[in-house]
Design a protein around this nucleic acid. Structure first.
Length: 390
DNA sequence: CTATCGCAGAATACCACATAAAGGA
DNA sequence: CATCCTTTATGTGGTATTCTGCGAT
């Protein structure tokens, strides 16, 4: 896990039991932070243990017990993060928040909240849309259709993602760790993306068992994928994701907002680049819903969303719907599509750095001296030194 | 109908190094 | 508690390479 940079906060707390995985729940009875696996082991051991009152760990800082649930964001937050996040802007202040409820039973099969990575920043930045867009009923439907999954759709999506089978797979797995399962899956997917093997494996191999059955499942999934992609295009919104910089692990998302289909034709699509830092401070249920309800993201992205088996949102009240649509519109207005430079100084250095075939090259002594001379001259002329960081 | 090829465009990897951030003294 | 030093992780851009989708054959 990358170290949080900037004002993002501290590191995720590790499980008090295994000391390795990131904790997800806080057991009040044991005063212990636990990962999903350990929680399952410990609290499924006996009836008394299962009655331990537990709460989710704050999804923002991942290091303190959550005290409130933000209904608008579908996120469990600690008091500090709640104050931080919901004082950011008037819209955030309007979020409906309630004291967090203890987790009943054990984690698997929970309806909410969904454990997922949290991104900080203020949503999809960028603005690829030329000018203001009209918000017509079509757009509203578009927003609603993706924001608010109805139970019927959930089933569809569930089927498509093969969640049922996948979940059961995870349960059958020896380590009982859905996080690891997911990671293994993504890793496997990476391994399989060679030119000679284009069959993006959806069904995890470790499920083992009948090879023929797996092939059949793969075929079905491919067909379902095709269907879903078509449906996604029709609804005017599909997305794919990729890490912008695999080296740094900085997983940026690439959202492709396919324009609405009119008269059976597509009118191009627009691309949104979203880095985790550009994503919203408030854990965004909208984005989460999108991630859950769309086509399987390509390699790289899956790691970003690695977590326990995906769960569909439980129930949306009219208030939730209104809030979600409102947030969707707000985001659409403030989208920025161009790349955001976080450190101008780094950009400046990168631009002046010597390159060989586009790659950064080592500076020779001569170049270094010349560079220093120029720097000295610049400082003398401008009175400024290094370009200040943003 | 399927397989293969070529092409175009998108996505990703790679590099060095300044700097932010964390931790220890 | 504040300061300094060391270590580690991150971010930056241009080009080459790889991947992917699609049409032609």
């Amino acid at each position: 896990m990358k170290r949080n940079s900037g004002d993002g906060g501290g590191r995720a707390r590790t499980c008090d039991s295994c000391q390795s995985a990131a904790c997800r729940v806080y057991c009040r009875a044991d005063s212990a932070y636990l990962c999903v696996g350990c929680d399952s082991c410990i609290h499924a051991a006996n009836w008394v243990a299962s009655r331990h009152e537990r709460v989710w760990v704050c999804e923002a800082c991942e290091s303190a017990a959550a005290t409130i649930t933000c209904k608008a964001d579908a996120a469990a937050l600690c008091a500090a993060c709640d104050a931080d996040i919901h004082s950011a802007n008037p819209l955030a202040r309007r979020h409906h928040r309630v004291p967090i409820l203890p987790i009943p039973g054990h984690l698997f099969g929970m309806s909410q909240p969904v454990i997922r990575p949290v991104y900080h920043g203020d949503d999809v930045s960028g603005d690829g849309f030329a000018g203001e867009e009209e918000v017509g009923p079509q757009v509203e439907d578009e927003a609603a259709s993706w924001l608010l999954l109805n139970p019927g759709k959930s089933k569809e999506v569930d089927d498509y993602l093969d969640l049922v089978e996948y979940n059961s797979c995870g349960e059958n797995n020896n380590n009982n760790n859905p996080y690891q399962d997911h990671h293994q899956y993504s890793h496997q997917q990476k391994q399989n993306n060679g030119k000679n093997d284009r069959s993006d494996r959806v069904v995890p191999v470790q499920c083992g068992g009948n090879e023929h059955l797996q092939q059949l499942q793969q075929q079905q999934l491919l067909q379902q994928q095709k269907d879903m992609e078509y449906d996604g295009s029709k609804s005017g919104f599909s997305y794919t994701g990729s890490p912008s910089h695999s080296e740094s692990g900085n997983a940026a998302l690439l959202f492709f907002f396919k324009s609405m289909e009119h008269d059976g034709n597509f009118y191009g699509y627009q691309q949104v680049s979203l880095s985790p830092m550009e994503a919203s401070i408030v854990p965004d249920s909208t984005r989460t819903d999108i991630s859950k309800s769309h086509t399987r993201p390509p390699r790289g992205t899956i790691e970003l969303f690695s977590g326990p088996p995906l769960q569909m949102p439980h129930q949306f009240t009219p208030l939730d719907r209104e809030a979600s649509v409102l947030r969707y519109r707000e985001k659409k207005k403030t989208r920025k599509f161009q790349k955001t430079i976080r450190y101008a100084s780094r950009k400046a250095y990168a631009e002046t750095r010597p390159r060989i075939k586009g790659r950064f090259a080592k500076r020779t002594d001569v170049e270094f001296e010349v560079d220093q001379m120029f720097n000295a001259t610049d400082m003398a002329e401008s009175g400024y030194g290094i370009v200040p960081s943003l």
